[in-house]
């Protein structure tokens, strides 16, 4: 098993005829992903790399049984794309757009929660269950170079760091059940602890590695979930951004969300909250393989 996506996932690509949609679809098909449909209004009846294109999500889902959507539409139309995917019945929606209008983002999150759907993103490069399925550009043109199948779960606030974590594991002979780039914005479809709770219930995941940053309640909620016993499997945590505490508050150095809002949001505060809850906090990537060996 794995979380969210596996070999049975049937994927529909929203915006399949755009540049990014075309590019990622080609790579995903090469990886063996079951992309069963694409959607671009006005382009229904065409094909992209053998994948049928529909005018609406509802047509795509009815005709192909797609159950997961990847949206490559621009930020200005992403909220509606998410609404459409959810109304069409997709239980998993991955939204890649960067620079989402914030009102749109919270509306999309509220909509997906109301429908019991799982929105991943915004500002994500994807999710991958190595050897089975991937949504989004994660892994690039050679996912096998970075993501090896295995029994560790990854949840990362950064797509690039998800790759660095998987790569450092692979070089120590360890693989990944599912790696999630959950999105780097302040507002994300689901919060970090919700992914960890999925891993908690996945019999093929033994331990989880998280990458966190300053800003947002994501990591403090993970600490609470561990302390409350909702997450019992080992959690190894890498939280970057302690250097920010040397500079005036309010200066943003990375992702939009990585802005220190108050003293509980700093990297140091998150590290200590996670450590006291029982997570294994590491301060270098190189320390991660040993940390995994120690907890398993």
């Amino acid at each position: 098993m794995s979380i969210l996506i596996d070999e049975n996932t049937r994927v529909v690509v929203q915006g399949i005829t755009g540049n990014q949609g075309l590019f990622d679809t080609k790579l995903a098909l090469a990886y063996g992903v079951k992309i069963v449909a694409g959607v671009t209004p006005g382009r229904g009846g065409e094909e992209v790399y053998g994948v049928p294109v529909f005018d609406t999500m509802l047509q795509a889902v009815r005709n192909t049984g797609a159950n997961a959507a990847v949206t490559y539409v621009p930020a200005s139309r992403s909220r509606n794309a998410v609404f459409e995917a959810i109304e069409a019945g997709c239980g998993i929606v991955l939204a890649t757009a960067e620079n989402m209008p914030k009102h749109d983002a919270v509306q999309a999150v509220a909509m997906s929660r109301r429908a019991d759907a799982w929105l991943i993103g915004f500002n994500t490069n994807g999710v991958i269950s190595p050897g089975k399925c991937k949504l989004g550009g994660i892994g690039g043109n050679d996912p096998d170079a970075i993501y090896m199948p295995g029994r560790l779960g990854i949840v990362s606030r950064s797509g690039g760091m998800s790759a660095e974590l998987a790569w450092v594991l692979k070089r120590s002979g360890m693989g990944v059940s599912t790696a999630v780039s959950m999105g780097g914005d302040r507002t994300t479809g689901r919060m970090m602890h919700e992914y960890l709770e999925l891993f908690e219930n996945d019999p093929e995941t033994d331990a989880m590695i998280i990458y966190g940053e300053p800003g947002t309640d994501n990591e403090s909620k993970v600490a609470r979930a561990i302390a409350e016993g909702l997450i019992k499997k080992p959690v190894i945590a890498y939280i970057a951004g302690t250097f920010q505490e040397r500079y005036p508050a309010g200066v943003s150095f990375g992702h939009v969300a990585a802005m220190i809002v108050n003293k509980d949001d700093t990297a140091s505060a998150k590290r200590s909250a996670l450590a006291s809850a029982g997570a294994n906090v590491v301060t270098t990537l190189a320390a991660i393989p040993d940390a995994v060996r120690n907890v398993l």
């Binding site: 760091m161 150095f253 992702h255 990585a258």
Partner: peptide, 15 residues
């Protein structure tokens, strides 16, 4: 780049 690697490397250099 990206945002995450930037934070990590800045931390490391300061350390």
């Amino acid at each position: 780049a990206g945002g995450g690697a930037g934070l990590l490397q800045h931390d490391m250099i300061v350390e």
